[in-house]
Structure formats: C-alpha cells, structure tokens
Amino acid sequence: MLEINTPLINTQWLEDHLGNESLVLLDSSVEPVVPGFNSVNRDGNFAAIPGARRFDYDQVVCRPNSSLPHMLPTKELFQDEVRKLGVNKEATIIVYDDVGLYASPRAWWMFRAMGHQQVAVLNGGLPKWLKEERDVVDEYSNPELGDFEADLDDKFFCDFEIVLKALYEPNCQVLDARSAARFKGIDPEPRPGVRAGHMPNAKNLPFTDLLAGGELRSVQELNEIFTGLTTKNRKVITTCGSGITACILTLAANVAGYKNLAVYDGSWAEWGLPGKLPVTVD
C-alpha cells in the first residue's frame, strides 16, 4: 500500500507514483468565481492528468435539493458516488484542480471528514503540471466499482449554531477567507440578497494571502501568517463565501501544524442571508 504522511504533495512525487495500483487521482475542479482566478480547462480546452477521475462535489457529491451550494452530503451518498469512481477503502487519494490551488482543498477535507486519512492535495494542480510539460490525456479514467467505506466525523464541518457560539468563546477563532473588501462590507456579495459585512469577532485572512504562484506558501511563511491571528491551542473555524476557499485556510493551517480545525459548511451563503445571525461592517 502506498502511504503518505502529508496533506500536500508536489508534481514530481505524483509523476513518480502514477503507476502505483493504490493511487487514485481525482480532478475536483469547480469553476472559480473569484476575480483573477481562471481554469486552464476552459474555452474548449481540456486536459487531465493520466488516470484521473472526475470528483464533482459541486453538482454530484453534494447534498441534493439544498438551497446552499455544494453542501456536504450524507455519508451514504458520498460512499455510493465515490465507489462509482472506483475508489477503494485502502486507496491513496490525490486531489487536484484546474486553477492551481482552489477547489481541491475542499475535496481533501471532505475525504478527511468521511474518515479517509490517506488523501493529499496536489500543490499547483493542473496548471503547474502543464507548465512542466508532463503527460496529459483528453479524457477521464472509467474504472470498475470500488469498495470505499465512509465514516462521517461531524467535527470536520460545522453549522451556524456552532459558529455562533464559537465567535464568543476565548478558545476559538473564526477566520474568514473572503477578500478584505467583502469582509469589511465595502464590496457587495456576489450572491443576490446576501448581506455585506462579516461575523462579529471573526478575523479576515484572504485565501490569496496563503498562495504564491498558484501554490501554497512555505511552512515558515504560513506559520508567520497564522501566528498573527491565533494560536495552536485554539480551535480554528474557517469560513468564506460558500465553503470552498475556507478549505484553503484549513489546508494551510494543517500544513502549519494546527490540529483543531473545522469548516463552516454554509459559510456566507448561509450566514449572510436576511435573518437574525449577527453581521457587522468595519
């Protein structure tokens, strides 16, 4: 069995292990909505890393009939859909996306939430792979049914009630991955009817601050960033617009050595709706 002990792997490691029978490669791309971030698979272009399978958590591996985007599904739905992708319970899973480092961290966190430890993110994703002129194919792999087993741990994703309490607890820190202008209520939210601003006592850490050239910053740089916002003995809950870029913060915190982590699944798509949840502006 191929084992990994890091949440982040590089392109050379992946190329060296592509032929390993335990390896499962999943394209978890989601079309970016953040200005300045673009998919390389657009305008009629398509490429996949050899052996990749399509893990679509935006439309398929998500809670059906939800008013909120790509919410975490039940463990039964997750298990069924992942088995269709040929994923086995002993698999070593590598997730990537076609932006660089954008949608893949959420896929990583979903598998972690479902009890799978052997999963990592490809740093730099498909853009870096293409830039290095490594081999690609023009279609996804279509494997036989797998035997993946999901075992949901509720601590990985949390709801608004948990977040509301955490905002006023000294041993917790909520970090918001949206841009500073959205956090401060200067820029309007992209979703119609959603209030501008942020949660009281939350701190702003734009996910872009954690990236350099489409890759995650060094461990030293990440530690310097997080040290200015929280401590490793506090629980860190991340949030964003809809639960995607919050997972970039969670990945970065994990790489930097933070262990007590959770993602607010509904994020601002839920919190910002008209209602009684508190919103403030700077």
Rank of each mutant, 00 (worst) to 15 (best):
R112H: 12
R112Y: 01
R112S: 09
R112F: 01
A113N: 05
A113I: 06
A113W: 06
A113Q: 09
M114L: 11
M114S: 10
M114G: 03
G115H: 11
G115M: 09
G115K: 10
H116C: 03
Q117A: 14
Q117K: 12
Q118K: 14
Q118V: 03
Q118S: 12
Q118H: 12
Q118M: 13
V119A: 02
A120I: 06
A120H: 00
A120L: 10
A120Y: 07
A120M: 08
A120G: 04
V121W: 10
V121F: 07
V121H: 10
L122N: 06
L122D: 02
L122H: 01
L122G: 07
N123Q: 10
N123Y: 01
N123C: 10
G124A: 02
G125E: 03
L126D: 01
L126F: 03
L126Y: 02
P127Q: 02
K128Y: 05
K128M: 11
W129M: 07
W129G: 03
W129P: 02
W129Y: 11
W129L: 04
L130P: 10
L130T: 08
K131P: 00
K131S: 12
E132Q: 15
E132W: 07
E132D: 13
E133P: 04
E133V: 00
E133M: 13
E133K: 15
D135T: 14
D135A: 11
D135G: 08
D135L: 12
D135W: 05
V136H: 04
V136G: 01
V136N: 05
V136T: 14
V137T: 15
V137P: 04
V137W: 03
D138P: 00
E139F: 09
E139Y: 01
E139C: 13
E139P: 00
E139W: 05
E139G: 11
Y140M: 07
S141C: 14
S141I: 03
S141H: 15
N142R: 14
N142E: 12
P143L: 06
P143I: 05
P143N: 08
E144L: 13
E144Y: 09
L145R: 11
G146P: 01
D147K: 07
D147Q: 06
D147F: 08
D147G: 03
F148K: 02
F148Q: 05
F148C: 02
F148M: 09
F148I: 04
E149D: 06
A150M: 05
A150D: 08
D151S: 15
L152N: 06
L152A: 11
L152P: 06
D153L: 08
D153C: 11
D153F: 12
D154L: 14
D154N: 15
D154W: 11
K155E: 04
K155C: 00
F156M: 13
F156V: 11
F157S: 02
F157P: 03
C158L: 05
C158Y: 06
D159N: 15
D159L: 01
F160N: 10
F160H: 15
F160I: 08
E161S: 10
E161N: 15
E161H: 13
I162R: 15
I162T: 14
I162K: 15
I162L: 07
I162G: 00
V163L: 10
V163G: 02
V163H: 04
V163P: 05
V163S: 07
V163K: 08
L164G: 07
L164V: 03
L164T: 11
L164C: 12
L164M: 12
K165V: 05
K165L: 12
K165C: 07
